[in-house]
Simulated scan of single mutants.
Amino acid sequence: MTARPAPPQAPPPGLFITFEGGEGAGKSTQLARLARTLREAGRTVVTTREPGGTERAEEIRAALLSGIAKPYGPFAEALLFAAARIDHVDRLIRPALRVGEIVLCDRFADSTRAYQGAAGGVDPGTLRALERAAVGGTRPDLTLILDLPPESGLARARARAAEAGAGADAPDRFEAEALAFHARLRAGFLSIAEAEPARCAVIDAGAGPDAVEAAIRAVVAARLPGLLPAEPAPETASRDDAA
């Protein structure tokens, strides 16, 4: 009797890693560095951002960062972020995870909790309802919160804009907020990390980019074993040898 061929196996589920933090914390830089490391290790990586990531969501991003929705208040902005997130999750994030890819996202639902919630004053219960509608069960496996005093982050953001050249030095909708807003924002992200320690890891973003990258690699290696290539054992000298 001829044996039946084994049914094709479903690909392993992908992994979803998000980068969060205030303005100028270095999320985009560190996301690109982790993506490069993973690709060099043979992983298939999708990099994306919020708001954005899909054509429709990028259109909403442009409107939000221009400040066009600001007069309608933080709740209206939260609705727009949720609309962008629904398209992003449906069209990009879920399909990538379904085929076993690693998705690295610059901001996700925690940013809405922090910006429109902790800093903007929208009721947490309302935001939770929006989040359920937008993401369902598509939650990050790991969230890296890059923490930086707001004064330092805003200075970095201004320097970055100046380096980008003429026409790029005007702060966007959220960079232009007062320092007190950014202080509430930082507290909001730290509160999220405290409430969900199994998912979130706080990274000191005040160090240089290489040190921050090393800290992120250490967290990823510890939280998601086998994802990164093994680090070579460091060569150490005893105190007597160094004398």
Rank of each mutant, 00 (worst) to 15 (best):
A176N: 12
T138Y: 04
V135R: 10
D169N: 14
G226D: 09
T126W: 10
E55G: 14
H182Y: 12
F75A: 15
G53V: 04
E194P: 13
R160M: 05
F75G: 13
T44M: 13
I192N: 12
V212N: 08
R184T: 09
P12A: 00
A155T: 06
C200R: 03
E163Y: 13
L228A: 05
G206W: 05
R139H: 14
A41L: 05
Q116D: 08
A83Y: 01
R113N: 12
L146D: 06
E151T: 02
E151H: 01
E50R: 05
T2Q: 12
K70L: 15
S66L: 06
A157S: 14
G226Y: 03
G26F: 07
G52T: 03
F189Y: 15
G26T: 13
R223W: 00
G67R: 03
I68E: 09
L224N: 03
E50M: 07
A170W: 11
R91I: 08
I192R: 13
A109R: 15
G42E: 00
V122H: 01
T236E: 10
V220E: 10
L130Q: 12
A183I: 07
V122S: 04
L228F: 02
R128T: 15
F189K: 13
T112L: 14
V45I: 14
A168F: 13
A25F: 09
D240W: 15
L34V: 00
Q9F: 00
L127E: 06
L34R: 00
L80M: 10
A10P: 09
T138L: 09
V89L: 02
A233N: 06
R239S: 10
A214P: 11
F174P: 12
G226K: 02
R43E: 14
P229H: 03
T48F: 07
F108H: 14
R223Q: 02
L130D: 14
E40L: 03
L104P: 08
E77D: 06
E213P: 14
A133D: 11
A230V: 08
A133M: 15
A82N: 04
E213A: 15
P95A: 02
L34Y: 00
A218H: 12
L80E: 01
S66Q: 03
A198L: 02
T54D: 10
G22S: 11
P7W: 02
R56K: 15
L92E: 13
E151A: 03
G137W: 00
R186G: 11
L31G: 03
C200W: 03
L224Y: 00
A242P: 05
R139S: 11
H182D: 12
D106W: 01
P140D: 01
G188R: 00
P232F: 11
R107Y: 06
E23C: 03
G206D: 07
A237M: 14
Y115M: 06
L142F: 10
E20S: 10
S191E: 15
P225C: 02
A214S: 12
A201K: 13
V103L: 07
L127Y: 09
G100N: 09
L38H: 02
V220Y: 08
P140F: 01
E59R: 13
P8D: 04
A161T: 12
K70T: 15
I86D: 11
T143S: 13
E101T: 08
F174S: 09
